[in-house]
Design a protein around this nucleic acid. Sequence first.
DNA 1: GCGGCCCCATGCATATCCTGCTGGTAGAAG
DNA 2: CTTCTACCAGCAGGATATGCATGGGGCCGC
Lengths: 220, 220
Amino acid sequence: MHILLVEDDSSLAEGLQQALGKQGYVVNHVPSGRLALAAFASEPPDVLVLDLGLPDMDGLQVLSELRSKGLRTPVLVLTARDQLDDKVTGLDRGADDYLAKPFDMQELCARLRVFERRLSSVAVSHVVRVGEVELDTAAHAISVAGCEVEMPRREYMLLKTLMENAGKVLTREALEARLYSWGEEIASNALEVHIHHLRKKLPEKFIKTVRGIGYSVPRR
Amino acid sequence: MHILLVEDDSSLAEGLQQALGKQGYVVNHVPSGRLALAAFASEPPDVLVLDLGLPDMDGLQVLSELRSKGLRTPVLVLTARDQLDDKVTGLDRGADDYLAKPFDMQELCARLRVFERRLSSVAVSHVVRVGEVELDTAAHAISVAGCEVEMPRREYMLLKTLMENAGKVLTREALEARLYSWGEEIASNALEVHIHHLRKKLPEKFIKTVRGIGYSVPRR
DNA sequence: GCGGCCCCATGCATATCCTGCTGGTAGAAG
DNA sequence: CTTCTACCAGCAGGATATGCATGGGGCCGC
C-alpha cells in the first residue's frame, strides 16, 4: 500500500517512514502542503497521512483542496493534542480518521490497517487468478496449482502488480515506481533479480519479458 | 461503456435501461442470477449493476461466483435501504460500490462515472485494427489473422505509427523522427530494413510504398 | 551470529539493430 | 522502345544493447 506522508518535522517523518516501511508500506514523504498536492497529482497514493501544522499552507487547506477535486483517498490527520478543535474541522472537511500527537506507533498501524481493509474490500476482489497462479490480496498468500508458495515482500509486491495488470506490459519504470518510494531508488538490476526469483517459483513462461519495454503476465 | 443490469423488478429495470441508454451506456438486462452468469460468460460487460433481491439465487451468491472465477469487473450493488447488513457483506464479497433503494438517478450516474474513470485509467487497452492486423498498445502485442506475432521494439514502433495513421502517407523523415530521438539519427537504410522485416510478418501488400515519398498502410 | 532478504556488481548470451553493399524496379528522358 | 537514374528491396557481418544468471556482502530480525 502506498502512503503519502505530509509532515514538516523531518526527524519525525524519517522515523515514521522507516517504521512504516518495515510494515510493508511504501512511504513517500513531502514536507509541505504544496508539494503534497503536486505529489498527489503525479502519483496518487492509497492513503494520505497529513500533519496539520505545515509551513506553507494549512493542512486543512490541503484537505479541502483535495476533496474539492472529488478525490476520495482516505486521509488520516495528525495534530497536536491541544488543538482539539482541529479534529472537528478535519472530519468536517473530509478526513477519515484522526490521531493526536504524540501518538503510539501501534495505534497508527492499527488505524492504517483499517484503511487497508477498507481499500481492499472496496477496490478489488481479494483473489486474483491467472492461469494456475492464485493471489489472495487479503491473506498475502500465493498458491501455484493449489499449492501454497512463500513470497518475500518485494517479490509479492512485484507479482501482485503484474497480475493486477494481466495482459498489459508494465515498463521497468512503472514497476520500480510501484515497489520503491522516492529516495530509495535502486541503481542496479535488482528488479531483474526479483523477476528471476519469481520465475523459479512460478510456472514456466508465466512472466513474459518484452525486450526493451518491460514485463507482463498474459491474461488467460 | 457496457453495463449488465441484473434486476428482477421489470418496471424498474426498464426505466433504468432507458435512462442509462440516454446517457450513452449500452445496457443489457437480465432478471435473474443464473441468466446474469450466463450473460457474463458470453459477453463480459464493463460494469455489473446487481440487485441483491433476486428470485433464483441471491445476488451475493452471483457476486461470489464471479469473484471466485477471478473476474474483477466492477460491481455496483443495489439493495433495499432497510437491509444495511447487505452492504457490509456485499463489500466484503467484492462489490465496488453500493446504492440503497430507492436511489436518485443522478447519484447512480455519478457512481457509474467513477467506474468509467477507473476503467479508462487502468485498462488503456487501446486496440487498433486494420484489415486482419490487430495491434494492442497496452499489451504491446500484434496479431495477424488472430495469430500472435512477435515484434521487436523498432518494428513495433514503426508498425504502430503506420497503423495509427492508416490511409495517410508518412514520409521517411516523419517515420525516422518518430523512431529515433535526437542524437541517434541514422545514416543508412535502416528504416527500409525494418520495413522489409515487417513485410515478412504481415499480409502481402499491407505496407504500400509510395515512391519518392514514403510508406502507408491503407485504411480499410 | 545465523539466516533470510535484498541490493549490487560482474560476466555471459543473444536479440536487436545499424551498416554497407549488391541487384532490382519504376518512371522519366531521349 | 531504350536507356538512364534515383530510389528501393534484400542480405549478411559486426556492433550494441538488453536481459539473465550468479555470487558477494550489508542489513535486520531472531
